[in-house]
Amino acid sequence: MISWLAYYDDVIGHMFVLMILAFSMYVVMRVGVFSVASIGFWAIAGYGAAIADQYDVPPLLIVGGALLVSGVFGLLLALLAVRLSGLSLTMVTIAFVLLLQVIVLNWEDVTGGSLGIFGLPVHIGTYGLLAVVIVVAVLLALYERGRTGRAQDSLLHDEQLAQSVGIDIRRQRIVALTLSALLGGLAGCLNVFQTGMMVSNEVGFHVVVDALTMVILGGTAAWYGPVIGAAILAWLPQMLSFADEWRLAVQGVIIVVVLVFAPQGAAGLIQRLARGVAAKRRSSLLKRREPQDVSA
């Protein structure tokens, strides 16, 4: 067991980083918004951390800076994006990521161009990452209980209903987009701390596909959705080691198949199963206690 953990230490550590990125995607998708801005903040914070690291800035200060920058830019992007709805909002977030891609590739002096920035010290180990994931997951689980959770559920399933019971869609979206930016920035920063490098690939198409695979596979029904999604994605290369060059294709197929056949994802299926069990238990209790008189 111990040797197994040691052998897969990198995979497990990366899994935790992916979980935070998945959380970042999740918090916006949960309020019915398809945004890929997470990848933008992943990249901004990643490059920021890598560059600061070259000047030996203390790691904690780097994290703080990454959160600050992501939060501020996330809020600005949110204020701009919430004036739009649906696909138009999605489009702006994609444009944001595509622009960053252009900047990263062209601004070679700072970003290292397509080669990126290498050879940085590793600042965080697997246990440290696990601790961060646990803290974020607990906060999210607490956050989505009760009133806020119900508001998110209504935004995810029925925007008009949400408005009709007094939920301010824009405000909810601004909060979600900003939170997503913070988490995306945190993930990007931790990614550099774990791997000791930042490459231009991390702004590319395949990170978008990775992020979507996690959040679609896991689903947006509850906080454990992205955890499941990230866990599966992290182990996918191990399972597909015979066909690594087809990994993107496999992920693409997963996204389409899940969307068509199980749009609620793993968390949704788990919730549904739990509902079924609860319903059965209740109805058998009712039958035992009193004769049903559903007069309808």
Partner: peptide, 21 residues
């Protein structure tokens, strides 16, 4: 709509709008 709700007007829709979750 959400401002109007908080002013004290609530509505239902023609189709049933309940959250299945």
């Amino acid at each position: 709509p959400d401002q109007i709700f908080t002013r004290g007007i609530s509505r239902t829709f023609q189709s049933i709008r309940l959250l299945s979750t």
